[in-house]
């Protein structure tokens, strides 16, 4: 356990450059021990680059980084022994079976064979791949490979697990299974760092999160705090007839705190969506469809980056 503070990962002015290109531009954050910490951001924001530095897979260009109280520059081996890593792109050994992938990985951690066998069985149960144990990895579905990668990351019973887009490419059922498993993991005391493009995932899983955009951190807090801070309580989503596009300048003025025009819909940010909708009707603005919903991280994201999260 870290001595000085109870932060499991601490970054100060953390920077990653690839030649002249800056992928991570002097970010600061602290991941508290226990709970799960999210990195949210669009493609190319620098999430993976940050994960890879924490996992000691990529050298820090400048700034300070401490992982479990140690310095990746000098203590990579010791850090990696206590880390579990689920990379964005699966790197399972295609020449081995499902079970062998776990047992082989255990060897790299110097785990005795008997213990490895035992853990492999438990983990295969855990990710519901027990009946595929003897199969080759290659023909597994994308979601199964993902689950195996997650099982593999847990073989050394890590205290910190880094998951780079763990659920990308999974069907909804597999995603929910995984969320439930990650939740269990958290309850057993592991700290999770998760990157994702899915705001529902971030809301479900993350106790705290940072929003990254263009190599920087643009906001930090719990999902609730971020929504309170950067959005209104409710959102009125309108679909307006195409013919009216560009002609409704000013039509909606004054109906909401903030109006966001997306290619396919118009978002009105207000604390009372129903009232705003009544006002829209009162102005006799033609509407194809309307929906009132609560604000989500998606809205926070739109506000902060001017972009939608899921491409």
């Amino acid at each position: 356990m870290p001595a000085a503070s109870d932060a499991l990962v601490r970054a100060r002015s953390l920077t990653k450059r690839f030649n002249a290109f800056t992928a991570v531009d002097g970010i600061d954050f602290e991941v508290p021990a226990g709970g799960s910490f999210g990195f949210l951001g669009p493609n190319g924001a620098g999430k993976t680059s940050t994960m890879r530095m924490i996992a000691c897979a990529s050298p820090v260009t400048s700034g300070e980084l401490r992982v479990i109280g140690m310095d990746p520059r000098t203590d990579a081996r010791e850090i990696k022994a206590r880390l579990g890593v689920v990379p964005q792109i699966d790197n399972l050994d295609q020449e081995l079976t499902v079970r062998e992938n776990l047992e082989m990985y255990a060897r790299y951690f110097d785990i005795p064979a008997a213990v490895a066998r035992q853990r492999a069985s438990e983990l295969l149960e855990f990710v519901q791949l027990a009946e595929r144990a003897k199969d080759q990895v290659e023909p597994l579905s994308g979601g199964m490979k993902r689950r195996l990668t997650i099982a593999r990351a847990l073989i050394n019973e890590p205290e910190l697990v880094i998951l780079d887009e763990p659920t990308t490419g999974l069907d909804p059922q597999a995603r929910h299974l995984l969320w439930e498993r990650l939740y269990q993991l958290k309850r057993r005391g592991a700290t999770l760092i998760i990157t994702t493009h899915y705001m529902d995932e971030a809301e479900q899983l993350c106790d705290r999160l940072v929003v990254m955009d263009k190599a920087r951190i643009v906001a930090e807090g719990s999902p609730r705090q971020l929504i309170d801070q950067y959005s209104t309580r409710e959102v009125l989503e309108l679909r307006l007839p195409d013919a009216d596009r560009g002609r409704r300048n000013g039509q909606l003025d004054g109906l909401a705190d903030r109006i966001e025009e997306l290619p396919d819909r118009t978002l009105l940010y207000t604390d009372d969506g129903e009232r705003a909708l009544d006002a829209v009707h009162a102005r006799q603005i033609p509407v194809e469809s309307a929906l009132v919903r609560r604000s989500s991280l998606e809205d926070v994201f739109l506000r902060l980056t001017g972009r939608t999260l899921v491409e």
Binding site: A76, R77, A81, N91, D93, Y108, F109
Partner: peptide, 14 residues
């Protein structure tokens, strides 16, 4: 082509 070594490098192996 295979990312096998990346996987190994995530462990204490160098």
């Amino acid at each position: 082509y295979a990312k096998t070594y990346e996987g190994i490098l995530a462990t204490p192996m160098g």
